[in-house]
Design a protein around this nucleic acid. Structure first.
Length: 797
DNA sequence: GAGTTTGAAACT
DNA sequence: CAGTTTCAAACTC
């Protein structure tokens, strides 16, 4: 040992140059892995070396990855028998001085889960800062029912920093615990193999990580992100949803319906372990397959570019859920998102009602009535993963997420203010829509977990409570809805929506659930409700009728367009993006304000002074605009007359809206949307701030995404088949579509004269809009010309 | 929890 | 498109 240690030390030092960063130093100090990787010490590999890594560095981001992997491991771990065998195997190898390949495998295996983290850490300095969080993260991981190693490790981490862990102890602990490392090893081998194939004796963690990602089907944000050095990842809710859909499809195809999570990260997170395991499904297989599925799905379809964020969110939720005792399961509110557009597949969308827990989305037999459409209901909290609200969720649903989610988002933002923008978006999308309001809503977080539609038995457990949304609301299914979330913020999440319809059968827009594109769930106290997966056909028909009357009927009422995204449930907020845009296009950052959002049609309040929720503008957290016909407007978000907070000119706004509308309509007919407006056609920098705000902003995300996709994926691969149909909403619609186009073709803008509006979330098949929350089917992806061009890539945060 | 108010949705 | 009715959320007590 001594010799080995010395060697390791040498190696370590030699590498210091390379790994100068504090993070690496820290890592190197802590983990013996490095030396091993170096490959110098093949024989030096001792089991000990391996042990520590896992929990060591988890950056928030990383953690997500790691967690994801962890989850996978857990699944694998679940098998009690394996641990020992694997352990013995491992030991024998070690003692014998396994061949390089073997060693590398082992290392990788051990670290694979963590490797991601570590790698990530390298890239991001944030991680260090976030280090504080690590412990918690780790703990959560540990918290998994199975094992505690991780957790323990995590906990120890801080301490370990100074002292090297004794791997031996670790191992011992693990063995006691049961299963941790060894199983992991076995499970992770796949990764190792990959590595071997690549001919890399020493492990390049990064590579390993990336590989592992591939293996697991994760999008490897890591690769992209890190390699690119911090290019922010963007994940659109739509993407997520799309992914989830795809995933679901795959699962369904495979006969595994359990996973709700769009990205599949849920699985990875070990959702099952949370105790939610679906019945009748093979544990290991699923676990094993999951990666493949994911990989195939994601990679092939390219749906997800950065699922990382998503993963993170999910992870967090997952973690939370896991951490809590199983007893703490909360029954989530079932929620459902309807994906009207996709009838072909039975996709489940999980929308969570936030309150509940999030986590588990596993359902074994997802009965979702959705069957055809994408409705999904979650009973419990949604697993965060479920399709994003966005996805499966309607945009609407997404929009509202739990507060927690929001919080998370915000946190991230704060962490990496600029660079993270994309992330923010991503997060948001996951978590909730407009950040501010809605987290509860879900939009992102969607805490609504999928829950089999009428199957109470399968109530998901969530260990985690989501909070805020929940806070306001009650979990009692039985309780009538009357307890509304008065406390909820203006933007309450759709996810939290519950109706109390008595005569409309929940098939009219009076019904909030229906209007939001959600199925009614238990918490609803509606009577004679037909807005359930069981009556899917009816729901769809009705919806069509309504849409035929008013194509934008299900569109979000509030157009944040400008900021746009928020509304869509992306989770990103105008505020988040604006600075970037402004910077890019020379607009003053200070101008960025949420106020730009407007109600689609404007309100018509007469008595409420636009100071109560009766007022849709107020309810939506936006100021009244010229389009409002309200009397005595006192809207604190912006009065119609004063337009205090409103920054943009009405005329422009109107123009924009008009354009949007036109575009939307056009889009419906056709794929491409061209905006002919002169303003739009102008070069970005020349555009009016407002326009930029309204139009460009939304597009940005898409651009980003397109970027990512472009790099990683082949646009062609994206099967948008149906891609998302968009349900037009005001501006949202167009935006979305356009973005979609972008993504797909990577097309640059089209004709010189016309520019296309890019939708915020394009890429992913489904978008969720806040209120309307529908899934959009993207047929063509209009490229947003300007964005697609150079500067976007370079400048974007 | 019941009743009232409110304004959007639906209808004419 | 305007007026009326219906509806359910928001609100009050």
């Amino acid at each position: 040992m001594n010799v080995d240690e010395e060697e390791e030390e040498e190696v370590r030092q030699s590498k210091l140059n390379i790994w100068d960063s504090p993070v690496f130093n820290y890592i190197s100090n802590l983990s013996p892995i490095e030396p091993v990787k170096s490959g110098h010490n093949n024989h030096t590999f001792s089991s000990l070396t391996f042990a520590s890594p896992p929990s060591l560095f988890t950056s928030p981001q990383i953690s997500s990855f790691s967690e994801t992997r962890f989850a996978i491991r857990r699944h694998q771990f679940s098998d009690p028998s394996k641990p020992e065998s694997s352990q013995s195997e491992y030991e024998s190898k070690t003692s014998e001085g396994a061949p390089v390949a073997t060693q590398s495998e082992q290392l990788e295996c051990f670290n694979s889960g963590d490797s991601a983290r570590e790698v990530t850490n390298e890239s991001s300095t944030e991680n260090l800062e976030l280090a504080v969080e690590f412990p918690s993260t780790l703990r959560y991981d540990c918290g998994s029912p199975d094992g505690n190693l991780v957790p323990s490790d995590a906990v120890k981490m801080p301490e370990l920093a100074s002292t090297e862990l004794s791997l031996v102890q670790f191992v011992a602990d693990d063995s006691k615990e049961g299963n941790f490392s060894f199983e992991r090893e076995e499970n992770l081998r796949g990764i190792c193999r990959v590595e071997e194939n690549n001919g890399i004796a020493g492990c390049s963690w990064v590579k390993v990580v990336s590989e592992s990602n591939n293996i697991f089907g994760l999008d490897s944000p890591i690769t992209g992100d890190h390699s690119d050095e911090q290019e922010p990842r963007m994940v659109d809710s739509g993407t997520i949803s799309f992914i989830s859909n795809v995933l679901d499809d795959n699962l369904n195809d495979m006969g595994k319906t359990e996973f709700v999570c769009p990205t599949g990260s849920c699985e990875q997170f070990g959702m099952r372990e949370s105790g939610v395991e679906s019945e009748g499904i093979g544990d290991t297989r699923e676990t094993d397959q999951t990666p493949a599925m994911l990989s195939s799905t994601l990679l092939n379809k390219l749906v997800v570019s950065d699922s990382c964020d998503l993963v993170d969110d999910k992870r967090q939720k997952y973690i939370k859920s896991n951490c809590k005792p199983s007893s703490q399961l909360y029954r989530g509110i079932r929620r459902r998102s309807l994906v009207f557009e996709r009838t072909e597949t039975h996709e489940r969308i999980s929308i969570c009602e936030s309150k509940g827990s999030s986590s588990v989305s596993i359902q074994s037999n997802y009965k979702v009535a959705s069957a055809d459409n994408d409705l999904v209901e979650n009973k419990n909290g949604c697993s965060s993963l479920s399709k994003l609200p966005g996805i499966g969720l309607h945009l609407n649903a997404l929009t509202n997420t739990s507060d927690e989610t929001i919080v998370k988002i915000e946190t991230r933002v704060s962490e990496s203010p600029q660079t993270s923008t994309p992330k923010m978006i991503f997060n948001t999308s996951l978590t909730s829509d407009e950040v501010p309001q809605d987290i509860c809503s879900s939009h992102n977080t969607l805490e609504r977990a999928l829950v089999p539609w009428d199957d109470e038995a399968q109530v998901l457990e969530n260990a985690y409570q989501t909070s805020e949304c929940l806070v306001g609301e009650e979990f009692d299914h039985g309780s009538p809805r009357k307890k509304r979330r008065k406390s909820e913020p203006v933007g309450e999440s759709l996810a939290c929506k519950r109706c109390n319809c008595k005569r409309s059968k929940c098939l009219k827009l009076y019904c909030e659930c229906f209007a939001a594109g959600l199925y009614c769930v238990e918490p609803c106290s509606c009577q004679d409700c037909l807005n359930k997966p069981i009556h899917e056909n009816t729901v769809l028909e009705t919806r069509k009728q309504i849409e035929s009357r008013n194509p934008l009927a299900f569109a979000p009422k509030v157009i944040r367009s400008v900021d746009g995204v928020g509304e869509f449930g992306n989770g990103f907020s105008y505020e988040s993006w604006y600075p970037f845009l402004a910077r890019r296009y020379g607009e003053d950052d200070t101008k960025a304000t949420p106020a730009s959002a407007r109600h689609k049609r404007g309100c018509n309040c007469r008595k409420s002074g636009c100071l109560k929720k009766y007022c849709e503008c107020f309810q939506g957290g936006v100021g009244c605009s010229l389009s409002c016909r309200c009397m005595g407007c006192k809207n604190t978000f912006g009065q119609k007359d004063g337009m205090e907070e409103t920054e943009f000119d009405e005329p422009k706004l109107e123009t924009y809206e008009k354009l949007v509308m036109d575009v939307s309509l056009e889009t419906f007919k056709d794929q491409d949307l061209l905006i002919t407006s002169s303003e739009i056609s102008r070069p970005p920098n020349e555009q009016q701030p407002n326009l930029i705000r309204k139009i460009l902003l939304p597009s940005i995300p898409s651009v980003e995404s397109s970027h990512q996709f472009g790099n990683r994926e082949n646009p062609e691969k994206i099967t948008l088949e149906s891609h998302l149909q968009m349900i037009p909403e005001d501006g949202t619609l167009e935006t979305l579509e356009s973005s979609c186009q972008q993504t797909r073709s990577g097309v640059k803008s089209t004709s010189p004269n016309s520019k296309r509006v890019s939708p915020p979330y394009r890429e992913f098949g489904s978008l969720t809009a806040r209120r309307s929350g529908r899934k959009l089917i993207l047929r063509s992806i209009p490229a947003y010309p300007q964005l697609s061009t150079d500067h976007e890539s370079s400048d974007f945060p």
